[in-house]
């Protein structure tokens, strides 16, 4: 399985990963539910995640709730640490033993028919090219309740075209139109179950469509990289924290640390 994942990563720039320890993933979901109960008090409904949009709160309150929730789950880097535990095996295969994880895990809630989150972009730059995103849906995704991903070849095709257009002084609206339509047309629309993750390279373009289904989409994203590979604008230790160290790094830190005892 791991070999297949790595092969797909090299060829496509991404792969779909089946989480082995679902208990740990459930812990994250349960934790979000518990904290939500506290924040939203009586407003919790059956089938909370998928039916979230039926809870009657204003957009401003929704934003406050999301920020409060993110603050809670990121205390002491709780979710970041759990995320590393869940994906440790595959992450170590990709990066080796010296690994840093993004301290704050991002939580995205996409209610139906909300155009404000539509986006086509890639994370690097400004993130590092030596970084991976682990995208974890907390609900089953399908159709537009999903995130679409452009594979490595299509991403580089699109970037080349855009560069050519810019060099030929094409109108910027025309370029943007092409960018969006190419990305939405050529991207892969994988259905993901809760218990699966889309693990992708920061160099890939991905699209967030408007969710036109009748369920809310919930997702978490984690980021990992090797401790010693180049950083993007998100550096160490502001954004990333050590998740694991190799024996040799432990020795080096022990030696250097003894100067400050």
């Amino acid at each position: 399985m791991v070999e297949k994942n790595i092969k797909s990563l090299l060829k496509n720039g991404y792969f779909i990963y089946n989480v082995k320890d679902k208990k740990k993933l459930n812990f994250l979901k349960d934790d979000i539910f518990k904290e939500s109960k506290k924040i939203l008090k009586g407003k919790i409904k059956k089938n909370f995640f998928n039916e979230f949009h039926n809870i009657n709160i204003s957009n401003q309150k929704l934003n406050e709730y999301r920020l409060k929730l993110m603050k809670k789950v990121n205390v002491g880097e709780k979710f970041s640490k759990k995320g590393y535990e869940i994906f440790q095996e595959i992450i170590q295969k990709i990066f080796g033993l010296d690994i840093v994880a993004q301290k704050n895990v991002n939580l995205v809630i996409q209610k139906p028919n909300d155009p404000s989150q539509i986006s086509v972009h890639r994370d690097a730059p400004p993130n590092s090219d030596y970084e991976l995103v682990v995208w974890v849906p907390l609900v089953n995704t399908f159709k537009s309740k999903n995130m679409y991903i452009l594979d490595k070849n299509n991403t580089s095709k699109l970037i080349k075209k855009i560069k050519k257009f810019s060099n030929n002084n094409k109108k910027s609206e025309k370029i943007m139109d092409f960018y969006y339509s190419f990305a939405f047309n050529k991207s892969k629309k994988h259905k993901l179950r809760f218990g699966q993750a889309l693990i992708f390279w920061t160099g890939l373009i991905h699209c967030v469509p408007e969710n036109q289904e009748k369920e809310t989409r919930w997702s978490l994203n984690f980021r990992f990289k090797n401790t010693f590979s180049p950083y993007g604008t998100k550096g160490f230790p502001d954004y990333f924290a050590v998740a694991n160290s190799s024996p040799i790094t432990k020795l080096a830190l022990e030696k250097k640390g003894s100067d400050f005892n």
Binding site: T227, F228, Y231, F236, P237, A241, V242, L253, K256, G257, F260
Partner: peptide, 10 residues
């Protein structure tokens, strides 16, 4: 202190 050493080395 380990984070500071790593920051310096990076």
């Amino acid at each position: 202190v380990n984070d500071l050493i790593l920051f310096s080395d990076l």
